[in-house]
Design a protein around this nucleic acid. Structure first.
Lengths: 236, 236
DNA sequence: CTAGTATTCAAGTAATTTATTGAATAAATG
DNA sequence: CATTTATTCAATAAATTACTTGAATACTAG
């Protein structure tokens, strides 16, 4: 029957997307891209892969429709091809968290502080920020901060945390966030801030999830798409 | 640094879930399982794979945490390990639809009727059903209907469609649904009903999506979990 | 206990995937 | 135009995956 072949062809296409998600290095690239647009060499550096290998992975991601490439001069800038990709990654993470025992084990052994510092949900942060009760710090590297960050957040990359201590009010609670719910940066930051006697907590999730929910974001560097829902109109 | 290895290990676990989704046959198995619990041999038959091969795929799915196995007598019954898996599959489908050009091409060539019969959204069906304006038919095979179906839906498997025509009121609109948004069964049913001069439309999505939204479902066969949110309590 | 059925395991082969290497484009700069 | 820089392509070896086949296990029924 012809419908059998249709079904199989369709599932093969879905499987292409699955294949793109079937490799740890590609998932890492996707997490970096969820912070904002980046060039190939940059991605190679932060992910620790060779440039050629990075390029090949990016092309696989592009063929699966998860990322898009923009060529400018001799550079090629990659970015996620839509908000739905961030959502897909979130689903994947949630399913793994929920059903893959190893994930919990890993989190418990590496992120020992976890129980101690219960993460702050988005809504609560919004409320406290409105009342001026918290200082929000973004502990990602400056490029990612520049591509987009929570409104009012101060960029203090992890490496310079100690140097910026005096900027933080010891009376006010500090909330740190980074790339996502399992990114170590914010965990580390909170741990170190607490050792210094500050009141510190971690935002439940990272910048991509915040933006996905349509909450306001700011960006300093090159122009980024800030609107929650973008309406695409054909040229007039 | 140790955090690098943590990150990689974590992404490797996420990638295991991605791997499970990287094969067309496994995705097809997951779609069948989204209709309800099924035995290995049954799954092998409907998917057209050998039993041994089906078993191996199921084990991969189990290791990725996507399905669970229940042994009863000499049979092993598999089912999805949670609602979040249905959601993940939905995300995957949506991303593919949105960003993989081939999907649209396939849908357009095989499901030619598509433009003509705009699908009916969930909410509208609920509203019209409340007013008694529509007849809802479930065109899946009886086993799947038995495992769970929309309340008030009549089971008319596609093969017996013509034989049951007189049961349908020619004045009332007929709404057909099946396994999911791209399942051919409902498309086929609508096409054939229209040829017979009936007013027929297709529900936007299938049974698993309906259930996922927490909407009411009925089941006739062996007991199924009907509650929208199940609270898991340890034995008293 | 024996025969039968459902499922899984184990071994083998063909195909696919990953990462490496070195060469090929393609744009910018002197 | 030649050189540098960023990226991609092509060829390769090692590892992994998909499916087949035949045997092993586990449970049921006679």
């Amino acid at each position: 029957m012809s419908s059998g072949s249709f079904k199989h062809d369709l599932f093969s296409q879905f499987a292409r997307v699955g294949k793109a998600l079937s490799n740890a290095n590609r998932l890492e690239l996707l997490e970096f891209l969820a912070q904002g647009e980046r060039g190939v060499e940059e991605l190679a550096k932060v992910s620790g892969l060779s440039v050629a290998n990075t390029s090949q992975h990016l092309q696989q991601l592009r063929q699966a429709g998860l990322v898009t490439a923009r060529k400018q001069g001799q550079h090629v800038y990659y970015s996620l091809s839509g908000e739905d990709v961030v959502q897909l990654l979130g689903c994947l993470r949630r399913v793994a968290e929920q059903h893959v025992a190893e994930v919990e084990k890993l989190v418990n052994t590496y992120l020992t502080v976890k129980d101690d510092l219960e993460p702050l949900p988005r809504e609560e942060l919004l409320e406290r920020a409105r009342k001026g009760l918290v200082t929000v710090i973004d502990v990602r590297p400056p490029e990612e901060y520049a591509a987009g960050h929570l409104p009012g957040a101060v960029n203090i990359p992890l490496s310079e945390l100690e140097a910026h201590l005096q900027e933080l009010d010891p009376e006010q609670e500090v909330v740190a966030y980074c790339r996502g719910p399992h990114c170590v940066l914010a965990f580390d930051a909170v741990e170190r801030l607490r050792k210094k006697g500050l009141k510190a907590r971690r935002l439940e999730d990272g910048y991509p999830e915040w933006k996905l929910m349509g909450l306001p974001v700011e960006s300093s560097g090159p122009a980024e798409n800030n609107e929650p829902q973008t309406e695409k109109e054909p040229a007039p």
